[in-house]
Design a protein around this nucleic acid. Structure first.
Lengths: 232, 232
DNA sequence: CCGGATCCGGTTAGATACTG
DNA sequence: CAGTATCTAACCGGATCCGG
């Protein structure tokens, strides 16, 4: 209907009609990662226009990949959730991510840094297991960014949920990390280790030695890290 | 350059910029399957315009996924081959194909039948192991198609190479298969078994009983069959 | 035949603003 | 919060043509 189809009965072509339109795979990554609200999805794909996002969500709904439902707790708003078919795109997203991590030249895309996207992803992928079971606050300071974007707080609650603030929440800070955006992005992508960044003084950590020593593990990294090199 | 990028450093987004533009995944399927020549690729994606095919091949070359080289035996023409990065898209193509086989409604796409595409894929995916090591000729007759498209010959040479003809090659035929295009497509996609089609008289096989009995295995099916149902 | 290039009309996507 | 509306730029499909 909206898309002219590839006109093939091959499963690859049939799936590509649904999954390989512009922005769709990136949107699916957001859904797989657990975002459900329209504006939550928008934060994950900030350069996608809301009109196109709305259109893609409707197409995915039509294809049986997502379903719209009233949001729990706010029945007058909408939550988008993956159907069983949608949850089954996880292997596809993983395969694509693995390929990208292994084979795409990172230099050009390291020009497109976005601190909000980075912090948002860190919030989502933080590995809370090694973090003590009391409220823990980590402040990130990016001296190279304008003041309005230079300070971020990750708050791990005792129940292991993670909050992200970009205004001072007023809690005591357990660990300070001062770093430039590019370095932090490289670490998060698995292109560089915490230890290496500390050694070269591009990442400065202030806090309990135990947290510093385990940072590499609780950072969690992107699900695609460990795929390539650690350019050490 | 040609595509506005997603502007994200996430591996999924970076890979999707390269792999998830229109027609690209279907083209990669052809390359993974072993096609190398421009017009050979065109036969695999008959509804893709040659201009766009040319453009995509250049983009994939630029991305390090394919490489152009003089064709062996015809040095004034071109062969497109996958690089190591290109061969590594196989898991992606497989994941997408598996998802399509499992989750895409087949009814609409069964409207887009194409006998040439089907026979071309059969030629490529025929499992020659169970076929005797002498020249073996199988004739497919599609009574529902116009005369110019109704008869096809698959020739398995003693060295296990497979040729496809749509004009009578004049060889003795070992096995005749009379079938309608939709049924044969369903069988090839794994949506229906040979035995079921024979039972319902929509597939008529004439030839040695041994070949008939093993047809389900030497047909080979698409690499994605066996993923779902056999709607029996 | 092979390997494209060129032109043109229709569709899709991006940017920005706005609304219930 | 959850989208529309509108306008413009980019892309795509289809046909045709061209040099070896």
């Amino acid at each position: 209907m909206t898309n002219a189809s590839y006109g093939q009965f091959c499963p690859v072509a049939m799936a590509a009609e649904v999954l390989c339109t512009r922005w769709t795979m990136v949107l699916l990554r957001e859904l797989v990662a657990g975002s459900t609200r329209f504006n939550e999805l928008r934060r994950g794909v900030p350069r996608m226009s809301p009109a196109l996002l709305s259109k893609r969500l409707r197409e995915l709904e039509q294809a049986g990949v997502v379903e719209r439902a009233p949001a729990p707790g706010a029945p007058d708003t909408v939550a988008y959730r993956l159907t069983p078919a949608g949850r089954d795109v996880l292997p596809v997203v993983e395969a694509i991510g693995m390929w990208g991590q292994k084979w795409v030249e990172t230099e050009p895309s390291l020009e497109n840094l976005d601190v909000e996207l980075l912090m948002w992803d860190m919030r989502r992928n933080l590995n809370t297991d090694p973090v003590p079971a009391v409220q823990t606050v980590i402040e990130f300071v990016y001296p190279d960014l304008p003041r309005s974007q230079s300070r971020w707080w990750l708050i791990v609650e005792p129940d292991r949920t993670v909050d992200l603030c970009h205004v001072d929440p007023g809690f005591d800070v357990d660990l300070y990390a001062t770093v430039d955006l590019r370095t932090m992005t490289e670490i998060w992508m698995g292109l560089r280790s915490v230890a290496n960044a500390v050694d070269r003084d591009v990442l400065v950590l202030v806090g309990p030695q135990a947290m510093i020593d385990t940072m590499q593990s609780w950072l969690g990294l992107s699900p695609f890290a460990a795929q390539k090199k650690l350019a050490s």
